[in-house]
């Protein structure tokens, strides 16, 4: 079973994502509420995939994109799926440049999330 880490500053979104992903047969191996925590936990948990909210409060100079960058630096094969509002496209592009694999728009739909996760993991 593939292990997924969920990163989002909103408890609500984390709940939704965890529900969707565990419902689709994935193991939620951890969650983080800010960029810094995400990077730290990634290094310990080494999940197969990370879902990452791109717009999160700055944490010690680290935002969502910075977290993607740090994670990819630590693990060049890291698979990060961006979860973002549609209107933040330029940020998403930056995150993809930093090494993220794909993006699912908010408000999230269960099938879109599962499809994107499957696609990334198969690659």
């Amino acid at each position: 079973m593939e292990r997924i880490m969920v990163v989002d500053d909103a408890v609500f979104m984390r709940h939704m994502l965890k529900k969707i992903l565990s419902g689709a047969g994935f193991e939620i191996c951890g969650e983080a509420t800010n960029a810094k925590e995400a990077v730290e936990k990634y290094k310990i948990l080494k999940p197969d995939l990370v879902t990452m909210d791109i717009v999160m409060p700055m944490m010690e100079e680290l935002d969502g994109i910075g977290a993607v960058r740090e994670i990819t630096k630590f693990d060049p094969n890291a698979k990060v799926l961006i979860i973002s509002v549609m209107t933040q496209q330029s940020l998403v592009v930056e995150a993809l440049q930093a090494g993220a694999k794909d993006v699912v728009p908010k408000p999230i739909k269960a099938d879109q999330v599962v499809e994107a996760v499957n696609k990334i993991l198969k690659k």
């Binding site: 973002s84 549609m86 496209q89 330029s90 998403v92 592009v93 993809l96 993006v103 728009p105």
Partner: peptide
């Protein structure tokens, strides 16, 4: 398509 800009970026990359 919800994020044309992002998709275009992915295509270009």
């Amino acid at each position: 398509c919800a994020m044309k800009q992002v998709r275009a970026f992915l295509v270009l990359t």
